[in-house]
Structures are given as structure tokens and as C-alpha cells.
Amino acid sequence: MTVAVAVTDSAEGIAALASAHAEARLRGSGLLIANLRLNPLDDAEIPRDVDVKVVEREPGVEVGDHVLRLLDDHRDEVELLVIGMKRRSPVGKLILGSLTQELLLSADVPVLAVKVA
């Protein structure tokens, strides 16, 4: 079994990765990282004490679809999806949409939404 996590280029992304790592250790499962950044993750950011797989974005695939496809491809393995969340203004939502909302509504696995203090 594995814990999936969506890592964005923000403090929320880092928090999500930390929580997912803790969950994976607790459950003794692997970690499936959907990298939503435009750069690869830093080596130092990738946990070494659990089984990790990082999946990069494909060209022309929206961030939300990237995560949902990953869940689809690992249908019977993923037991939990971890995402970071923060408040987005109505205008921001209008322009950029809300990844959190999309994943909460569309993922068919339990979702853990992590906030940054």
C-alpha cells in the first residue's frame, strides 16, 4: 500500500510532504509523490526511510489531472491522498481555480488536507 501526496511549489507543499511522510512511516507503506512543481524536487526533500516514487508532470496535463491520473494508475495501492491547503480569495479562485477543491471532490480515496500554521 502507499500514501500519495501532491507537492506544490509552496509552504503548503512542504507541509503536505512532511505529513505524508509521517503517515507513510506510521502505516509502514510507501510514498507516491505527485510533483506539481515545474522543477524537480531537491534530493534533500525526498525521504529515504520509506519506499518513494516521484512522478513528474507530463506536458499539457493540468496539475489537478496529474494527481487524479496518478490515483487512477495506482488504483488499488493508494490508501490516502495528502494535500496542502490554504485560503484563496474569490478572485483568485475565479482566475486560477482551486486545486484543493478539485482534489477533495474528485479523488476517490480518503484525503488528508494539511494547513500551514
Binding site: T8, D9, S10, R37, L38, R57, E58, P59, G60, V61, E62, V63, G64, R88, G92, I95, L96, G97, L99
Partner: peptide, 9 residues
Amino acid sequence: TGGWRDLAT
């Protein structure tokens, strides 16, 4: 690869 949604960063 990148698009509108990446402007959130």
C-alpha cells in the same frame, strides 16, 4: 508543461 494554474506559485 506549465500553464495558468502554475501562476498560483
